[in-house]
Amino acid sequence: MSDYPEDLKYSSEHEWVRAGNTATVRVGITEYAADQLGDIVFVSLPAVGESVAAGDACGELESTKSVSDLFSPVPGTVSAVNPLLEASPETINSDPYGDGWLFELELDSDADLDELMDADAYAEEAAG
């Protein structure tokens, strides 16, 4: 049993993907990643309309400790960014699976969410 939400898929770069009933997914970083970064003070997100491939660096998260690249876990076109984070980037630390989401992607037709890890596999990798 993991401490990570079971309804999400996870990347090895510590991003999560929440799929809905459409071809649009929501992307964020895991609680583990937020804890490792420390207090997030600035967020640079991809532009709406930008196309990204799986594994592409598409933004940055700046914390009191460091600046880390943000990677797209799946290919798609950015359809929304979280407007709350511009004024309150610390929301990522306090609610990484809810209000701290980063951006939404309209998935490319070849996107395969099954290539990502489930919660148990991610928990093993994060602990490893």
Rank of each mutant, 00 (worst) to 15 (best):
E90G: 01
D3C: 12
D69L: 10
D99F: 09
G55V: 03
D7V: 01
D114Q: 03
V74C: 14
L70V: 04
L8I: 10
Y10V: 01
H14N: 10
S44L: 06
E115D: 15
S63I: 02
P5Q: 11
A121I: 04
E90Y: 02
E50F: 02
L8Y: 15
A123D: 14
A126Q: 08
T91W: 15
L45M: 05
D108V: 05
E106L: 04
Y97L: 01
E31Y: 11
V27G: 08
T24S: 13
P83E: 06
L61A: 11
F103L: 05
P46K: 04
I29E: 08
D69M: 09
E60S: 11
L113E: 13
A87S: 14
L45W: 14
L84S: 10
T30A: 15
L70W: 10
L113D: 08
L105I: 11
Y10D: 01
L113H: 14
E50Q: 01
E125I: 04
W16G: 05
S2I: 02
W101Y: 04
A57W: 08
G100Y: 08
T24A: 13
E50I: 03
P83A: 02
A33P: 04
L107T: 07
E104N: 12
E6L: 12
L105D: 09
A119G: 14
D95T: 03
S94D: 13
V67P: 09
T22C: 07
T91V: 15
S66D: 07
D114S: 07
A33M: 08
D112Y: 07
A23N: 06
A111W: 00
R26M: 15
E15Q: 03
M117A: 13
E125N: 09
L102I: 13
E31L: 10
A47D: 02
D110V: 13
I40D: 00
E125W: 13
G100F: 12
T22V: 07
D114K: 03
V17F: 15
P75E: 02
K9Y: 14
S79K: 12
E60D: 14
K9C: 07
C58H: 08
A121Q: 06
Y32H: 15
S79R: 07
I29N: 04
Y32P: 04
K9Q: 12
S68F: 03
N82L: 14
Y122D: 11
E13H: 15
L116R: 02
V52R: 00
H14D: 10
W101P: 03
E13C: 08
E13I: 07
D112A: 08
E90F: 05
S51Y: 05
E6K: 08
D114M: 04
N21E: 15
E13L: 13
V78R: 01
G49P: 00
L105P: 09
S109P: 03
Y32M: 13
D112K: 06
F71E: 15
N93Q: 07
G76L: 04
L85T: 09
D110E: 14
P89I: 12
G76M: 11
G28Q: 12
V48T: 00
E50R: 02
N82S: 13
